[in-house]
Every structure is written in C-alpha cells, then in structure tokens.
C-alpha cells in the first residue's frame, strides 16, 4: 500500500442560500495514496467539484460551509490551516485544473505571465526573474506549446492550447496532488484524447497524485487507478479500476451508468438512460439517496441508510449486498 497523501474523513459541505440549504457533500471518506490517480465520477450536481473546492478551501466564502469532517494532507488537517498557510499550499502542493479553459485564463495577461505568476508566488528561494522565465519556457514546451508564444494572450490560443496552458500553470510548482475538474469536458473529442494522454504522461513524469473529476467513464478507464462513484453528495461505490470495470458486483447506480453508454455491437432503438433526475439537494430523500430511481429498490432502502459492503478495496454502499452476507 502506498503512503497516504490525502485523506478525506467524514466531509460534509452545505451551501447556505437565502432560500434553502443545499446539502452538496454528505459525509464522504476518500483516501489518495502518493502517485495514485483516483477518478471521481458522477452526474452534474453530484458534489464532485464541491469536494475538490473544499480540499483547496476555495468554496464561495459566504455560502459554502464545511460542516464536519477532516481533510488530512500529509497528516495535517487543511481545515485547521490559516488563510496564509492555505495560500502556501494552493498552487505549490495542491493544484487544480478547472473545467472550462476558455474562461480559466485572465484575458488581459499574457499566458507566460500567468504561468510566471504561479512560480513567483511560491518562489521562496528568491530565484531571479530570468530563471523563472526560463522555467516558464520549459513548462510551455512541456505541455507542447512553443516557448516563443509566451508573450501571446489567451485569445490567441485555441481551446485545447488554453487547457495546456492551464495545465502548465497547475504543474508549475510540481505539486504533489493535482485536482483535475473535468479537464476535457469543454474540449473537442479529438483534442480530449491528446490532452488526457499528455496529462497522464506528465503525471507519471512528475510523480504527482491526481484526482480526476469527470462524468466520462471512458476517461476514467484510460487514466485512473481507483474510482469513486458519487451520487447526491455521497460516495456510493469505490474500488480499483478493475473492480469497477470488470467486477460483476455493482451499486445499481453504477450499473445504470454503464448501461447508459451506447454499445456499437448491440442494435438498440433508444438510448438507455437512468430514469429520473438527481434528487433535489435541498431536500434529499430518506434512506438510500438513490432509491427513487433504483430499479431494485426495496422497502428498507426507503427508510434506512445503506450499510457499506467491502471486498478487498471494493466498497459498495447498498442494501442488496448486506442481505447476501
């Protein structure tokens, strides 16, 4: 077992708005070992991005509240750090790649300077300017952008190129943990594969751990060691990539997710989605959160929180499996 880099224990996040309380993340547990890649999979609104923002303590200040739990990074609780200490961690030890490269870069600053800024903030050794700019050039080349484009502005780049710049900003200080929030969702399919392959290479080269947030199971299969399936703010299934992709035992939601991927070999007139919608996070159902949409729903599911079933690393949170035991 690799040493633990990040441990999330019992983390809950609530957004307080004027109208309601939104229970975005509900008591999740997650561990990430050094050099591991974990896929965080789920529909829009499952709480994936909220989890990521909570790790970096970047939740919207007025509305987003972490109500319970711990986030241990190398054994230290990030939730107990001062603002100043957090700034020292962001970008240097934990970095994040955001979903939409079109809006993630400041339109009025050259890409070189945006990468340079990242280096400058964490330049504790007081390296001279020239050296930092040399590193900017290196980083650009690393993500496959010619260094001469350092002085160009974001609007002069394509979407895929912008995401490369965003990635080079995130990797500038060689963080131990990289959180990639749907890094390829906004890109063309042809570019997606390129960017993913590049990220995977860089991660291996720099020995970074990674949390890959996505709703694309294909992306997970390509890149992740372990997978956590999130639904309505909970992790309902967790396991090694093999467990998720090859095992026969799944949470009904995971089964539904796989079932909704169209198969070229089987002729079907209609797509096969999971019926219904994600529950309203302001009023989550009792018992298992998935029961209103579950085809295998039993009486107990409507009233009682499902227990966790374990087999090796594989965890499923569902009543179906507790009965078998």
């Amino acid at each position: 077992m690799l040493e633990k880099l990040l441990e999330i224990k019992d983390l809950s996040v609530v957004y307080h708005t004027d109208e309601a309380h939104v229970y975005a993340v509900n008591a999740i547990n997650l561990e990430i070992g050094a050099r591991e890649t974990i896929g965080l999979v789920g529909e829009t609104g499952a709480g994936k991005t909220t989890t990521a923002l909570a790790i970096l303590r970047l939740l919207p200040e007025k509305t987003g509240h972490i109500t319970q739990g711990e986030i241990l990074f190398k054994g230290e609780d990030l939730l107990k750090k001062s603002k100043r200490e957090m700034r020292g961690i962001r970008g240097a030890h934990i970095s994040m790649i955001f979903q939409d490269p079109m809006t993630s870069l400041n339109p009025t600053i050259t890409v070189g300077d945006q990468i340079y800024e990242s280096l400058l903030i964490h330049n504790y050794e007081g390296k001279p300017r020239d050296e930092l700019y040399k590193r900017v050039d290196e980083l650009l080349e690393l993500v496959g952008i010619p260094a001469r484009r350092r002085k160009d502005y974001p609007h002069q780049f394509s979407g895929g190129m912008k995401q490369r710049v965003v990635i080079s900003i995130a990797l500038a200080c060689q963080p131990q943990l990289l959180i990639a929030d749907e890094p390829t969702t906004a890109l063309d399919v042809t570019i997606q594969a390129q960017v993913l392959a590049m990220m995977y290479d860089l991660k291996e080269k720099l020995q970074t751990s990674m949390i890959m947030i996505t709703h694309d199971l294909g992306v997970v299969a390509q890149t992740c060691d372990k997978v956590a399936i999130m639904y309505a703010g909970e992790i309902i299934e967790f396991g090694l990539a093999e467990d998720i992709f090859e095992s026969d035992q799944h949470h009904p939601y995971t089964t539904g997710l796989f079932g909704s991927i169209p198969d070229l070999d089987i002729e079907a007139d209609r797509l096969n989605p999971i019926e219904g919608l994600m529950p309203d996070p302001t009023a989550l159902p009792c018992g298992c959160k998935f029961h209103p949409r579950c085809k295998l729903c039993m009486e107990i599911c409507k009233t009682t929180l499902p227990p966790q079933w374990h087999e090796g690393d594989h965890m499923i949170s569902c009543h179906l499996y507790s009965r078998e035991k």
């Binding site: 970096l56 957090m86 970008g91 994040m96």
Partner: peptide, 9 residues
C-alpha cells in the same frame, strides 16, 4: 480566472 488566481495561492 479569479478562481484560477486563487488556486495559484
């Protein structure tokens, strides 16, 4: 991009 700047520290 403001969030990006915050994420840089």
């Amino acid at each position: 991009y403001i969030r990006t700047a915050r994420a840089k520290g």
